[in-house]
């Protein structure tokens, strides 16, 4: 059992990181912490994909002429993750700008306070 966990260490750690990000996204009231949790989930999934592509004893896919294809790691997850990282940054920037707008309106980063204030504003009008 322990040997199996040690063997699959990358997968286990990525699951743990995913869980941490998930719980943060759900339960932490602070919006910036929520965005950090989302980033944690992102990177954990990237780690899982990159670990999927690894081949034991493989090299980075910089191909030399006349070599067998089993010498290299799988390039497909690498390509997927590469674009994913850059898109993750752009979504983070979008979320941060939305957070800034919310702060400008309600003067709080706490989601509970923001929801209560929004409810108050609805009742007052």
């Amino acid at each position: 059992m322990l040997e199996l966990i040690l063997e699959q260490r990358y997968y286990m750690i990525s699951i743990i990181l995913f869980a941490i990000g998930f719980v943060t996204l759900f339960l932490h009231p602070n919006l910036i912490k929520k965005i950090i949790g989302l980033n944690l989930m992102d990177t954990s999934i990237f780690l899982f994909l990159a670990a999927m592509g690894y081949v034991g004893g493989g090299q980075a896919p910089i191909i030399e002429e006349g070599s067998s294809w089993t010498m290299y790691i799988n390039p497909v997850p690498g390509g997927l993750v590469l674009t994913g990282i850059v898109v993750a940054v752009s979504t983070t920037a979008l979320f941060l700008s939305l957070t800034h707008r919310l702060y400008r309106k309600y003067h709080s980063l706490n989601l509970d306070v923001i929801l209560m204030l929004a409810k108050k504003g609805q009742e007052d009008t």
Binding site: V81, H100, L109
Partner: peptide, 29 residues
């Protein structure tokens, strides 16, 4: 994990850009 492309991108983007955006947002707030 033998993915130098990913390592370069993550070092520039994750450690550089994302944190910088967070810091700038905090500064504005």
């Amino acid at each position: 994990l033998q993915s130098p492309d990913l390592a370069i991108t993550e070092a520039a983007v994750g450690a550089g850009m994302t944190s910088l955006l967070f810091f700038l947002t905090l500064q504005r707030i």
